[in-house]
């Protein structure tokens, strides 16, 4: 029974955090400052989530580093998301046989 309440609270809080701002924030924001801030947020969030966590994502620094470099190069040449992601993982996997 306790498991049910744990999951209920977990899911409920998580949903409300997403739902309240998404549903009731329907006005166009006028402030240039705030609009600019929101414009940069996705890039900032992704960068903060990726660095340095990516270097620990495979359990071995060198395989992760190799995968990261492959991802950076392929992304620079604008390859599709799935190609970049699979190539990064694939090279980390291949590298793991050598390190």
């Amino acid at each position: 029974m306790m498991t049910f309440w744990y999951i209920f609270v977990m899911a409920g809080v998580t949903y409300l955090i997403r739902m309240i701002p998404f549903s009731f924030f329907t006005k166009r924001i006028k402030s240039v400052m705030l609009r600019s801030f929101l414009y940069y947020i996705p890039y900032a969030v992704l960068a903060a989530m990726t660095i340095p966590a990516i270097f620990y994502s495979t359990g071995h620094f060198l395989t992760a580093l190799g995968g990261t470099i492959v991802a950076l190069v392929l992304a620079y040449f604008r390859l599709p998301l799935i190609v970049v992601a699979l190539a990064a993982s694939g090279s980390a996997f291949l590298l793991s046989f050598f390190v």
Binding site: Y40, T50, I54, T63
Partner: peptide, 27 residues
């Protein structure tokens, strides 16, 4: 080894999302 390497997938995708606009816009 395979599970470990798969851990890189999401981050690889993040990189694919942020690098092209970052290469284009200094800001």
């Amino acid at each position: 080894q395979l599970i470990s390497a798969l851990g890189l997938m999401l981050y690889g995708m993040f990189i694919a999302i942020i690098v092209p606009p970052a290469a284009k816009e200094k800001s």
